[in-house]
């Protein structure tokens, strides 16, 4: 549909969250990471021979008695991709809870879709595990603890490529 618009259509979450937290009384805006240089690794072999893994920002399913607390622990995890998880815990994450839901895991962690591509031979195989890394306010924790652990798990599982999906 053709329309005229005076502003870009996609939402700037940097702008939106800055204004939201300012209105909530936080005096220092969050500073997002910015890099000029970007690392790049081309695939080293045909995709049909690659093992591909998945990373999500969603948390492991929580037992019902755990309840939802404001400050939940930020847990890094590796879980079996088969059988695929029926649900993952997303209540404590920032996503648009008024407009949509996360009842279908494949809408944010395509564990079944990836397995189908493996069965068809589009990729060599889907990793036996997927990994969870919850978004953290602290960039140093992400850089110094979470990212190296995810890399280690990728190496243990013999991955060539990784799809990372943030809610």
């Amino acid at each position: 549909m053709y329309q005229l618009r005076a502003y870009r259509s996609f939402v700037s979450y940097m702008d939106r969250s800055r204004e939201y937290y300012a209105a909530s009384g936080y005096t220092r805006p969050y500073e997002w990471p910015h890099y000029d240089a970007v690392p790049f690794t081309p695939l080293k072999k045909p995709l049909a021979q690659c093992r591909v893994g998945l990373v999500t920002t969603a948390g492991k399913p929580k037992p019902p008695e755990a309840g939802v607390t404001l400050l939940t622990s930020r847990e890094l995890y590796a879980e079996p991709a088969n059988p695929p998880p029926q649900r993952l815990f997303t209540d404590d994450l920032s996503w648009d809870k008024q407009s949509t839901h996360t009842d279908d895991v494949d809408s944010f962690l395509p564990v079944n879709r990836l397995r189908e591509y493996a069965a068809e031979g589009r990729i060599g195989s889907a990793s036996a595990r997927f990994y969870g890394v919850t978004t953290d306010y602290s960039q140093s924790r992400t850089l110094e603890r979470y990212a190296p652990q995810i890399l280690e798990w990728c190496r243990e599982d013999g991955l060539d490529a990784v799809l990372l999906s943030a809610l």
Partner: peptide, 22 residues
């Protein structure tokens, strides 16, 4: 998530981010 993807790329893994916060 972007920071994790960058770390994997720096260490020889190919990555794609799938996301909605452009």
């Amino acid at each position: 998530m972007s920071l994790v993807a960058r770390h994997l790329e720096e260490n020889g893994l190919s990555t794609v981010i799938i996301g909605s916060a452009r």
